[in-house]
Design a protein around this nucleic acid. Structure first.
Lengths: 240, 240
DNA sequence: CCCCCAGCTTGGACTAGACCAATTTATGTG
DNA sequence: CACATAAATTGGTCTAGTCCAAGCTGGGGG
């Protein structure tokens, strides 16, 4: 048989037309309103919203209630090796910063205890941060760390980097890490913290960091905006 | 209505209720039909569809036209280091296989030429495959390779692994790789090849593989189901 | 007994609205 | 002119349907 003309949904055709429309547009430019597009393309607002919704999820468009729908800035690549967030961003000419929401001591739950090889209930340091690029929230991160780590808040505040503080102030050098990356959809908490919309795709990244003696010392859960972030890993083959 | 602290959408409440309902259910179990759920929860079918749609995107539920909506099997973790797909899957007790769609020779486009450091139009080997786990399509992959690689199709067919064929038959050992991971939404092609639904979140992975002499020899674009796959990277700190 | 096909069920796409909430814009007042 | 306020605009959520396409089921004919 010849190529089967599978029925492509109308919203998908509209989506690709809109993608072409904004391909070379300046970020921030407003596109026509949903109601105007519905009339222009002789369809319903529901269909227009589905098309726009997917382009928003892909980071092509952005939108705000009462303001309109606009062209989004391009996706920022981000190198996430065993370097610090700030160094990575600086290497790409981006202004990075982070807001520390919490530095405290907590006790290990089942999951953290298993990962860090400590007893359940063992005392851990907890660091919760929001990572920003050019002032825009990019990720939400909660790190759990073994060891006493006295005055962690001050050291963090001074160096601005968790890895730097660990190395300089506590002599802990994280030389190896295991990252898992998976997709997740934004819920109300993510919406509030990252300023994204419900159901937006996120990259959920877990990191287990190892010190020089191969003991796990860091267990971090990060949620990155899927429309603004690209994970990069460089790996060498293990010695056979 | 009574005082609500926050405006949580009704579809989200329903989504979480449904998530609880199927938490300990056996994969494959059918849940009530959309029309039944709409009546049961005193809402419209549109709202029910939005709730179910997100659970499908997360891999909690699956659905098929004419059949119904059912509990999906759990997400399979997948170790993607510098080992082969088949070895990784076997280590987790999963039956992996792959369907070779195409083995041919092609010419480098701008992107591939830049990555592999060859002139635009240079001849490359092209291998297009579908990766399956337990008979279910998990990923679609197109690899571009430098070098003459005579009889690649036969060697691939015999070993069943691209990396093994490269090492055993051509003496090419890929010892280092650079992977980028980002989110993408499924379009008509992805739907056809992977049997997923429109707009489902995918993990788009690009890999640049290096031989022992640090020359790039492999440039691969992979699209993995975001609801079934978890990327894993293990990294050592670069020598300072 | 098996197989084919018609009819039913179920999800997929879409419509044409309604009402709400956030934002911008216009307007009136001190 | 400055500023509070009202009106219009725009996206966010939801309703109550229609029509279509794919899978399932049961009955009739070979």
């Amino acid at each position: 048989m010849s190529a089967e003309p599978r029925t492509v949904p109308k919203y998908y055709l509209l989506k690709e037309q809109l993608r072409d429309l904004v391909r070379n547009a300046t970020p921030g430019t407003l596109i026509p309103t949903e109601r105007a597009l519905a009339e222009q393309y002789a369809t319903s607002r529901t269909t227009v919203r589905q098309a726009i919704g997917e382009l928003v999820a892909e980071g092509v468009l952005g939108r705000a209630q009462g303001r309109g729908t606009f062209v989004a800035p391009p996706r920022s690549t981000y190198v996430r090796q065993l370097t610090s967030f700030s160094d990575d961003a600086a290497a790409q000419g981006l202004a990075s910063s982070s807001t520390v929401l919490d530095v405290s001591r907590t006790s290990a739950d089942d999951d953290a205890a298993a990962r860090l090889r400590v007893p359940v209930g063992a005392e851990l340091a907890r660091v919760e941060r929001i990572r920003l690029i050019n002032g825009e929230p990019l990720a939400h991160e909660v790190a759990l760390l073994t060891g006493p780590l006295p005055d962690l808040a001050q050291h963090l505040d001074r160096t601005g980097s968790l890895y730097t503080a660990l190395r300089q102030d506590y002599g802990i050098d994280i030389v190896e890490a295991e990252d898992t990356v998976e997709t997740q959809l934004a819920g109300p908490d993510d919406v509030r913290i990252l300023g994204i919309e419900m159901g937006a795709p996120l990259l959920l990244i877990h990191r287990l960091g190892f010190a020089a003696d191969d003991s796990p010392v860091e267990w971090t859960r990060s949620v990155f905006r899927g429309d603004r972030f690209r994970f990069l890993a460089r790996m060498r083959s293990p010695q056979r």
